Structure formats: C-alpha cells, structure tokens
Amino acid sequence: MDRRLRIHPPWLIMGALALAVLLAHMLTLSSITLSAIRNDPPAARKALAQAQLIKPSPPAPAPPPVKTAPAKPLSPAPDPLAASIPTPSEATPETSPSPAAPAATQIATTAHAPAADTPDVLVARQLPPPALLEYTLEGMDRGLHYRASSTLQWQYNEQRYELSLSVQAFLLGTRQWRSSGQLGPDGLLPERLSDKRKSEVAAHFDRVNQQVIFSSNKPSAALLAGAQDQISLFVQLGGAVNTTPDRFAPGVTLNVQTVTPRSADLWRITLVSEEQLVFQGQPHLTRHWVCAPRGPYDSRLEFWTDPALTGLPVRIRITQANGSYIDMQLSDLKDAPPLPAS
C-alpha cells in the first residue's frame, strides 16, 4: 500500500479534534436549553410570580349620593264637606255665656244697638211654609275651586219642627246638620242639633236646667233666652222678619245666642243692606245679613233672605280667614209636606 495514504497530516488531526469539541459543546448547550424549557423556564417562573403578587385593584369608591331637597307633599284635594256651615266662631277658643247674663231684649228695631253681652229674642209668629230649597255650591280651598250641591229642608206641624241642611260632594259623600225641637208661641224652641259625616256630634238644649250639653265632652254652657242653633236661626229670623217686617231695616244689629255642636256663643248679626239678586231669571229684593268674625281666625258668615220666597235664605256664603270660601246660591224652591205627627 502506498505510504502516503496511511499517514494523516497533522492539520487534519487537529481539525477533527476541534470539530469534536464543537459538537460536544453544542450537545451540552442543547441539553441544558431543553432541560430548562422542559422543567421550569426562569422567565415563566418570574411571570407566574408576578401574576401571583399583583392583586386586583379595588373597585373605585362609588360617588357620594347627591342630596336633593325632599319633595313637597301634595296638597290634599279640596274637601267641601270639611267646612262647617255656618260656624263663624269655631276657630277661636270657645267661651260660654255667663248664667247671669242680662235679661233678653225682644225684637231688635232699627235704632236698637245691643250691648255685646245682651241676648235678643226673635219673635217669629209667621213662620215660612214647609219647603225644600236646592242650592248650587261653589267653593275655593287652598287655591283650588270646586263645585257641589246642597239642600235645606224645612218641615213642621202644630207641635214640632225638623230642619236639615245637607251638602253632597262627588266621591266624598254627604255631610248633614239636623235641628229638631218644639214650636212655641214665639217660634222655634230647639232641642237637639247634630252634625254628621263619618261620625256624629251633637248639642242638646236642657231647658229644665237652662244648659246646653255637648256630646263632644266639652263643658256645658248656660242656655240664654232666645237661643237658637246654627240651622234654626235661619228659619227663626225669617219668621221674625215675616212677622214684623218694618222693624228690620238696614243698620239693625242682633245678638242671638247660637248653638253649634261645640259652642254656644252670642252671634252679632247685622242687616247691612237690601240687595237685588236674580234667581231663575227673576230679580228679587233680598236682605243681606252679616255675622262678622269675632277674632282674626274666625270665619265671616253672610246670608241673604227673601221675604217673597218664604223668608228662608236664598244665598249663604262663608269666608274663612285664609281666603277659602263656600258660596251656596238657590237654584230651585219646592213645596215640602208638613211634618208627620209623632
């Protein structure tokens, strides 16, 4: 064999050794990289550690609630049944007339100007005939206007009488005042006055003991001569004017003890004028009466009577201190049967 083929030159041997070393390093590096990737890459462990340490940010606090002014309560709907008809002095503290009040004065004349504590006795020997009066009612309460209807029924026989005044309002029901009693030689002698809506309150005339007794647990009051209640007053006054019309002219003032279910005060009533009003297309000459308020919170009562229409009120108006009012005007007048004998 040729000798040159069996002898390797030195550079070839050295190159082979270098190539072997290089291959060994590459294998070592590959094994380390694969092992690191397979077991747990440092970068992955760092990312996981960071993911575990970073907690979710707490939610942003909710903005504080905005304070708004409380809504104003809605004003209640006007209630025409709440008005007392007529009670011009109910809003003030009630006082009872003294039992030792001066003697009553019979029938006021034009020149009569009674003292504030002197009761008058109205003599009514010509009473209006039994009648049913129907009214249209207009009112204003807390700035709101409303309409309702009202009736006044008057009946009597030889011994007794009955009076009722009713106000009917849509969806609110009925409120009714009743007056009943005997008939005497000078007119009406009330025995009981009631005011009924959901419940009833009443005043009783105890003529034996000369007292007015109230069902509302109020102290009793002295019963004075000529006393009427807030409903019988209309008929008694109409009968007094029918009996002696010439004695009632503008300017006359009367003090009549007038009983309500809660009081028994002297009402100071003045005939202020004669006025022409129109009913059912016809003019009527009426008498305009005013019961002025006694104090700043009292109501003002006005009513108009027509001697040609039985002497009963053809219009009633009550004005409260705050401006609220009711105004009843006659819409129809009908005959009523006499009161059945008891």
Rank of each mutant, 00 (worst) to 15 (best):
G251K: 13
R178S: 13
P64V: 06
A82I: 13
H288Y: 11
A169L: 10
T151M: 04
T244N: 12
P9K: 14
A83F: 09
P190K: 14
Q126S: 06
I54H: 15
V121H: 06
S75H: 03
L309G: 01
R160G: 01
M328S: 05
T118R: 13
A83T: 10
L137C: 00
A51W: 11
I32Q: 06
I231F: 06
P59K: 08
P9F: 10
V167T: 09
S149E: 13
F205I: 08
P250A: 09
L152V: 04
N209L: 07
S166F: 05
P65H: 00
K67I: 08
Y297R: 12
A43S: 09
R268H: 15
T28A: 10
Q282K: 12
P245S: 04
T243S: 14
P76K: 09
Q236L: 02
P245R: 01
L266W: 01
Q211E: 01
G251Q: 15
E302N: 07
V235R: 11
A47H: 02
K334E: 12
V256R: 10
Q320W: 05
D298K: 12
L22R: 01
K196R: 14
P86E: 07
L48I: 12
A24M: 14
R125G: 09
R247F: 04
Y161Q: 05
R6A: 05
V290L: 14
W304L: 00
A108R: 00
T151K: 10
S89T: 14
S166D: 05
N157G: 08
A148I: 10
F234W: 11
N39I: 08
Q176K: 09
L27D: 03
T105S: 11
W267K: 08
P80F: 12
A62E: 13
Y161P: 02
D79Y: 02
R125P: 07
A264T: 01
A249Q: 15
E191Y: 00
P56L: 15
I231A: 11
L122M: 15
E275Q: 15
H112R: 08
L271E: 02
R294N: 07
T243N: 13
H8Q: 11
F170N: 13
S96H: 03
D2P: 14
I85M: 12
P338H: 04
W154H: 07
N217T: 09
A47I: 00
A148V: 05
Q153E: 15
R3V: 07
Q329M: 04
G187T: 04
V235H: 07
T253W: 06
A221K: 05
G173S: 02
R178M: 12
A227G: 02
L233Y: 05
A240Q: 09
D141L: 01
R317K: 14
